Simulated assay, not measured.
Amino acid sequence: MTLDWKIFATVFAAVFIAELGDKTQLATMLFAADKEVNKWLVFAAASAALIVASGIGVLAGTLLSHYIDEKVMGYVAGLGFMLIGAWVLWRTVSG
């Protein structure tokens, strides 16, 4: 197995951008703001949590790919993101 830098860069950029400013980063920032807490421990715990969550995503994607076509999974994921975006927009406008 060779390292495909294009895939690595694509996945890294997508996940990095998706994680910036989200509730995970904000929660980590709040834990790190506590003066009594070891910052390296917060970093290690947050990193481990993201690794485990990413592992679950890879496992789920691998298992689903045996039953669902990759293109269909892309459409479903895209539709899911659009529905979440529409829901957030609707709640912002209506509330």
Score class of each variant (00 low, 15 high):
residue 79 L to S: 02
residue 39 K to M: 05
residue 15 V to D: 05
residue 77 A to Y: 12
residue 62 T to A: 08
residue 88 V to F: 05
residue 44 A to H: 05
residue 55 G to K: 00
residue 41 L to R: 02
residue 65 S to W: 04
residue 3 L to C: 11
residue 5 W to F: 06
residue 70 E to V: 10
residue 27 A to V: 01
residue 88 V to I: 15
residue 15 V to Q: 06
residue 47 S to N: 07
residue 25 Q to I: 05
residue 66 H to L: 12
residue 75 Y to P: 00
residue 4 D to F: 00
residue 60 A to D: 12
residue 47 S to Q: 05
residue 20 L to Y: 11
residue 23 K to Q: 09
residue 8 F to I: 09
residue 18 A to E: 09
residue 68 I to E: 07
residue 65 S to P: 00
residue 65 S to L: 04
residue 51 I to L: 03
residue 56 I to Y: 08
residue 87 W to V: 15
residue 33 A to N: 01
residue 75 Y to Q: 06
residue 4 D to G: 00
residue 52 V to Y: 10
residue 76 V to I: 15
residue 35 K to L: 06
residue 63 L to V: 03
residue 13 A to K: 06
residue 11 V to D: 04
residue 70 E to D: 14
residue 20 L to S: 05
residue 64 L to T: 03
residue 47 S to F: 08
residue 74 G to I: 08
residue 70 E to P: 09
residue 21 G to A: 04
residue 34 D to H: 12
residue 25 Q to W: 13
residue 9 A to L: 04
residue 57 G to R: 05
residue 22 D to M: 11
residue 84 I to K: 15
residue 68 I to G: 01
residue 20 L to E: 06
residue 62 T to P: 02
residue 18 A to C: 03
residue 54 S to I: 06
residue 45 A to W: 10
residue 16 F to P: 00
residue 61 G to E: 12
residue 5 W to G: 07
residue 74 G to T: 14
residue 86 A to M: 06
residue 36 E to Q: 14
residue 48 A to L: 14
residue 58 V to F: 13
residue 78 G to W: 00
residue 67 Y to S: 13
residue 27 A to W: 11
residue 28 T to Y: 03
residue 30 L to N: 15
residue 41 L to A: 01
residue 18 A to D: 08
residue 52 V to C: 03
residue 45 A to C: 12
residue 69 D to C: 03
residue 21 G to H: 05
residue 59 L to Q: 13
residue 6 K to G: 03
residue 26 L to S: 02
residue 3 L to H: 05
residue 33 A to R: 03
residue 22 D to Y: 11
residue 32 A to C: 04
residue 39 K to H: 08
residue 36 E to S: 13
residue 80 G to S: 00
residue 70 E to W: 13
residue 54 S to V: 11
residue 68 I to W: 07
residue 42 V to S: 08
residue 64 L to A: 11
residue 41 L to P: 02
residue 12 F to W: 11
residue 14 A to K: 00
residue 66 H to W: 12
residue 43 F to A: 12
residue 30 L to A: 15
residue 29 M to R: 14
residue 61 G to C: 09
residue 48 A to R: 12
residue 36 E to W: 08
residue 45 A to D: 07
residue 65 S to G: 02
residue 82 M to Y: 10
residue 74 G to Q: 14
residue 78 G to F: 02
residue 32 A to K: 07
residue 23 K to D: 12
residue 35 K to F: 05
residue 24 T to F: 04
residue 14 A to D: 03
residue 58 V to K: 13
residue 7 I to L: 07
residue 8 F to Q: 02
residue 83 L to Y: 08
residue 19 E to I: 07
residue 8 F to D: 09
residue 77 A to K: 11
residue 43 F to W: 10
residue 85 G to E: 04
residue 58 V to N: 09
residue 6 K to W: 06
residue 27 A to F: 12
residue 87 W to G: 15
residue 7 I to A: 10
residue 46 A to Y: 10
residue 9 A to F: 05
residue 47 S to G: 00
residue 24 T to R: 02
residue 55 G to D: 01
residue 19 E to N: 12
residue 63 L to W: 02
residue 23 K to L: 09
residue 87 W to S: 15
residue 36 E to N: 13
residue 50 L to K: 13
residue 40 W to G: 01
residue 68 I to M: 04
residue 26 L to N: 04
residue 29 M to V: 06
residue 84 I to V: 15
residue 13 A to R: 02
residue 37 V to F: 08
